[in-house]
Design a protein around this nucleic acid. Structure first.
Length: 961
RNA sequence: GCCGGAAUGGCGGAAUUGGUAUACGCGCACGACUCAAAAUCGUGUUCCUUUUAGGAUUGAGGGUUCGAUUCCCUCUUCCGGCACCA
């Protein structure tokens, strides 16, 4: 054995593994199956980066570990080849997208192979293969046949740079996620998939799969289900009604005006002559804004215009004005709302600006109702010092052992007493301040159930809040007065921090209304609401809708933030949508036996500005006959988004060469769900959601056997540049894996460095130094193997107990860490093992009889992480066959549990010493040892042991006085 | 604003039913080998102090406990996602 040089071994083993085809998955094998899926890459022109390698290294470790544990592992790899970047790359370099794709994939394959990943290359394909996209088109036609794919003229998100329409999911902060160009609106006839039909299933399906909360929650949020009602508001002077969507029908009595989106179809109808000019000007101004501008305006002041007409509130029967404003979006709900300024912050802001009426209809209520409690009218007073911008709090917890924290000034109203007078009296009694000025009282009554510690009984208060300004800080007498004497401290605190200091929710609410001007958006008791007065708003929400449904003025409605998936792209490099437009029969499916509809070769791939695909220019491709009547017809010229091919690709791995169907049922049954799917967090609301939708639809069509595609999903974290910034070509801080391998570190050291960096799911900066560490570690492994072979070792010598212990501890830790996906600590355990072997080697000189097995175990434990070096070591140690087809080692508990252990001695919670004891020692024996230990004796001298806490083999804790 | 995650030495990070905080690696210092350097091997390395020892310490503050990185409450900062969604 010579020096460790990865170049000598890595390529050699890669070829050997390929020649022997050792990573091939076997259909129908009796062993348990395991599908380990990693997201297939998009073959860009710039090659693979370190982030790709993190994902595939993680998948490879798991695949290899499962294989060694007896699983029939399917670990496939393919290429997501259609899409904009390749097309743009081809245009820029004046080559065809076909050639660009071929070249890029060749480069990607070479890079993947140089990392030693155990992919089953026999099953590889790219989504731009006609043999593959034939089935993408076929599956699309199932959507079409089921009415799940439809065409509509809509305002799409249009990227003026890429010259194509986009799906909602591809727009981030008003910009195209690929090129960062601000998105415009453009009216185009588009194909859409009815993903909204599956909105509820996409939420409920998450219960049956193992996704981390960060991923599941993000999908649920993206779908944005909100339950509410659509309610009709009759126009005062017209037969038309305006339908609004609300999630708070319980606030309907507080609806004091309506607001329509500027694009709402009834705007013209409701605009009176006198308002027409103003309204038109406002609509024009709105249309001129891009989405980015309109979103930026969100943070600024709201704007709107009164349109002159009135509607009737179906609950209160009041006549309410109709406004238009661009804070209402046509794309959500009905594009119209009932504004409840008393209980909605946005409506409140709008009402304040345009002096519209405010009607409170919910009063906050806190605490649980208790039987036999006293009811009384009360006040809560806020005393504010305007000069210092502080308010006065009574701190009830600061004195003695009082319960309760900080409150405002509170008290009951005496019989025949004026509310303001009562508040002023309480201020004087409780604080001693007398020179105060009344500012305002609250509009809300706050209902509060509480236990009065002073009076020792349950109370129910109807509280009016009052705000006073302090005029002079002269005190009547040393405060506080007798009565509630000494029960609290007075504290002046800044207005900004007061809300979080006030302990009681009723007191806090009074402060929020009077000082912080916060709108009450919570649940509570209904008031000013006719027959619903005094009832709980949350409980009455559905009742109110039910009552309106009876008179056909409303219906229950669930709204989703999720929109139907815009499926058309006006580009060349994608799957042609297999539809023929006939003047007589409309859109007609291309018959299954004529699939695939192949992309025709063309001279120019450039997208057009018109919103028409470049395919439209190829007349002999476009002009076909109608499959139904044979008359002249035209092909659909839009192509599919690149999310189409990736929506079902995992299924094709199960049966990649089938030319009768997308995958045979028997193979779909055998492989079933993907057992673990590893990918990027950035695909959570794009690819991951789309492919779950496709799969759920295919399940409903009886085409796949499982309702969900992925049994478990994990997202790997991003690797940042060493300075914590994102790696990017423009910054020139991209880490190139091929350069690292070829510089001499090799793939194994790179794999280890990537994995050892941090937990797999954590975003973390790349550290070039880490590579030195893992390379050094592999060197030590290599050297250890070499020294062993050069020594006069023998398998007949006395077996070392220490060696067995090191070895079995390592097996246990590494096995458990891989199963828990704690790969970084698995490597730490391997390092500890090697460090231990080195130490032992120095004294033992390989004379113990169990060295060979200890090194074989080392090779096996290292095999998933550093496959090349492990294989080499395995061969050097005299084994036949690949280590990657060998069995994972098992640990023997008798070597893991230590005979002698060190336990900690704590006295009054502090560590005071350590004792080396026999494992399994009792509390009494340990206590005796403690009392004999001279150091500990001094600690215990003259003290009484009050309590002993004993944790077997770990710690003894003494409480002494 | 809402949802999710995080905060531990000079750095990346360990520590799961609450039980010896800082495993493993990097970096740094010293030593061995060497004419020398690299490589390699070994030792040390949370901080403070009056250093045979004592004290402090897991973003901040409070709580529960014999004992808290771990559980509870309040807050700050950072990362990811959503955001005028009615």
């Amino acid at each position: 054995m010579s020096r460790y040089n990865p170049k000598d071994i890595e390529h050699k083993w890669q070829e050997a593994w390929a020649a022997q085809n050792i990573y091939a998955a076997k259909d129908f094998a009796k062993r348990p199956k395991f599908v380990m899926l990693t997201e297939f890459p998009y073959p860009s022109g710039s090659g693979m980066h370190i982030g790709h390698m993190r994902e595939y290294t993680l998948g490879d470790i798991l695949a290899r570990h499962k294989r060694m544990n007896g699983f029939n592992v399917l670990f496939p790899m393919g290429f997501d080849a259609f899409g904009l970047p390749t097309e743009n790359y081809a245009i820029k370099n004046r080559i065809s997208p076909v050639k660009a794709t071929r070249d890029n994939i060749a480069n990607f394959e070479q890079q993947l192979k140089s990392m030693g990943f155990s992919f089953d290359w026999n099953r590889s394909f790219k989504t731009s293969d006609p043999d593959y996209y034939r089935w993408t088109q076929w599956l699309f036609l199932r959507f079409f046949a089921a009415g799940m794919a439809y065409q509509e003229e809509i305002a799409v998100n249009w990227c003026p740079f890429c010259k194509t329409g986009l799906a909602n999911e591809e727009v981030i902060n008003g910009r195209h996620e690929r090129c960062d160009t601000p998105v415009e609106k453009k009216m185009l006839k588009q194909w859409l998939l009815r993903i909204t039909d599956y909105a509820d299933r996409l939420i409920s399906g998450l219960d049956s799969v193992d996704y981390p909360p960060s991923i599941a929650d993000q999908q649920v949020n993206w779908i944005g289900r909100s339950k509410g009602a659509e309610i009709d508001f009759q126009l005062e002077k017209s037969a038309e009604k305006i339908r609004v969507f609300t999630t708070r029908p319980d606030t309907i009595y507080g609806a004091t005006f309506l607001v329509l989106a500027p694009e709402h179809p009834l705007v013209a109808e409701v605009t009176t002559k006198s308002q027409k000019e103003q309204i038109n000007r406002y609509i024009k101004a709105t249309q001129a804004k891009t989405d980015v501008e309109r979103q930026a305006a969100a943070s600024k002041e709201k704007t709107g215009v009164f349109c002159g007409a009135y509607a009737i509130n179906p609950a209160s029967q009041q006549r309410i004005p109709i406004w238009i404003a661009d804070y209402i979006l046509m794309g959500y709900g009905t594009g119209a709302i009932m504004a409840v300024p008393a209980h909605d912050e946005r409506d409140s802001e709008f009402a304040t600006k345009y002096s519209l009426p405010v009607q409170p209809v919910i009063e906050p209520e806190y605490g649980e109702t208790k039987t036999g409690e006293i009811t009384r009218d009360s006040i809560i007073a806020v005393l504010r010092n305007k000069k210092t911008n502080e308010v006065l709090l009574l701190n009830w917890g600061a004195r003695q052992n009082q319960s309760g924290g900080r409150l405002l000034i509170g008290g009951g109203i005496e019989r025949d007493e004026d509310i303001a007078a009562a508040a002023q009296r309480e201020i004087r009694e409780e604080t001693g301040y007398r020179d105060v000025r009344f500012v305002q009282s609250s509009k809300e009554i706050v209902h509060n159930h509480y236990y009065s510690a002073v009076k020792e009984r349950d109370c129910y208060a109807k509280i009016t809040g009052l705000l006073f300004d302090l005029i002079s800080d002269e005190l009547v007498a040393p405060s506080p007065e007798p009565g509630e004497k000494g029960k609290f401290l007075l504290e002046w605190v800044p207005v900004e921090t007061a809300a979080q200091l006030i302990d009681d929710p009723a007191h806090r609410r009074v402060f929020e209304e009077l000082v912080a001007n916060k709108v009450f958006t919570g649940e509570g008791l209904m008031v000013n609401s006719g027959k619903y007065d005094g009832l709980n708003s949350a409980l009455m929400r559905e009742q109110i809708v039910a009552d309106l449904v009876k008179t056909r003025q409303a219906e229950e409605k669930i709204n989703y933030r999720l929109k139907d998936w815009i499926f058309s792209r006006q580009h060349y490099w994608g799957e042609p949508i297999p539809i023929i437009h006939c003047p007589k029969h409309g859109p007609v499916a291309v018959p299954d036996d004529q699939l695939p509809v192949k992309l025709p070769p063309v001279e120019h791939y450039e997208p057009t500005n018109s919103g028409e695909s470049p395919l439209g220019l190829i007349e002999d491709w476009v002009n076909v006959s109608c499959p139904v009547c044979g008359g002249p017809a035209k092909r659909e010229t839009d192509t599919m988004p690149n999310w189409a091919g990736s929506s079902w690709y995992y299924l094709r791995y199960y049966d990649p060469h089938n030319d009768l169907t997308f995958a045979a049922g028997s193979k779909l049954n055998y492989w079933g769900m993907v057992d673990l799917y590893l990918g990027g967090m950035e695909h959570t609301t794009l690819h991951l959601l789309y492919s779950r939708f496709w799969h759920q639809f295919l399940f409903d069509q009886g085409l796949v056997p499982t309702p969900e595609p992925y049994a478990a999903r994990r997202g790997q974290g991003i690797i940042l540049a060493a300075d914590n910034s994102k790696m990017s070509k423009s910054k020139g801080n991209v880490v190139n894996p091929t350069e690292i391998i070829e510089s001499g570190y090799g793939a194994d050291a790179l794999r280890l460095a990537i994995i050892f960096l941090a937990p797999y799911d954590q975003t973390t900066p790349w550290s070039p130094e880490a590579l030195g560490g893992t390379y050094r570690f592999l060197n030590r492994v290599w050297t250890l193997g070499a020294e062993f072979q050069n020594s006069a070792n023998s398998t007949t010598g006395q077996k070392s107990d220490l060696l067995d212990r090191l070895c079995n501890t390592a097996i246990k830790k590494v096995s458990e860490d891989i199963n828990g996906m704690n790969f970084n600590t698995a490597i730490a355990a391997l390092m500890e093992y090697v460090n231990g072997l080195y130490k032992f080697k120095t004294e033992d000189k390989f004379t113990s009889g169990n060295w060979l097995s200890a090194l074989q175990v080392l090779a096996k434990l290292l095999a998933p992480f550093a496959p090349h070096l492990s294989e080499q070591l395995w061969q050097e140690l005299g084994n036949d066959g690949s280590i990657h087809l060998s069995d994972w080692p098992k640990w023997d508990p008798k070597f893991v549990n230590r005979q002698v252990t060190v336990i900690a001695v704590q006295i009054n919670g502090k560590l005071r010493g350590e004792l080396e004891v026999e494992a399994g020692i009792t509390q009494e024996e340990t206590l005796k040892l403690v009392e004999q230990e001279p150091k500990l004796q001094t600690q215990l001298a003259g003290k009484e042991i009050k309590r002993v806490i004993f944790v077997q083999d770990k710690l003894i804790s003494l409480v002494v006085t």
